[in-house]
Amino acid sequence: MVDTTSGTRRRSSAPTPEPRKAIELIGARKAYRSGTIEFEALRGIELSINVGEYVAVMGPSGSGKSTIMNILGCLDTLTEGQYRLGGDDVDDMDEIDLAAIRNEQIGFVFQGFNLMPSLSAWRNVEVPMMYARVPKEERKQRAQRALERVGLGSRLENRPGELSGGQQQRVAVARALVGEPTIILADEPTGNLDSVSTMDVLTLFDELHAAGRTIVLITHELEVAQRARRIVWVRDGEIMRDEVNAA
């Protein structure tokens, strides 16, 4: 394990009897407006996730899972309600603060990978570190190590177009991990993977969880969700069930 330190150290250096809250959604509502039609994708979500928790979000297609994820990743804003990240209201932050948060605290795996087609695998993985002002040499090394961790050590120079869907997804995972964020938000990270690759990625998430990272993962596969310690069920923009995973 290469990059397990920062999360654990932060936790152990500030021990609190109460678990610290990483993420809080309070009365969260999100309405999309297209023309005159308004569609409410989130209808009063209450969600609180502690630092170091491993949460799976499940629900039918169109239930609002990705919408929640975009809010949590500071990519979108709520129409109503509050989103607190590490105790701070995201609404009070400006674009520059948000950019720093997206860069340093959050690792986002997009549902549609979102890789840059003109850049090679390691150049794609390098991007978050460029905005974090990591020196050039170190960036290349870390990008390489992150790709090795997802089993793509031999595909560093390939562009996304030269990679399979599963490989692209793993590049996206590597990019989310490389900045050593404290929160990992993954929207269907195993959607395109075969069972072997799925297991590899889930093992990786287990390791990250063990290292103290907060993980939120969207999936429609129960086996995948079962790896998490807590499963949140969403339906029609509302949380139906929020249960500790017995398994």
Binding site: E95, A99, A100, R102, N103, F110, N114, A132
Partner: peptide
């Protein structure tokens, strides 16, 4: 536009 969105999502500040 998509690339810009992605760069911002990965932490690019507006000035960059």
């Amino acid at each position: 536009t998509k690339e810009i969105g992605l760069r911002k999502a990965l932490g690019a500040p507006p000035w960059a």
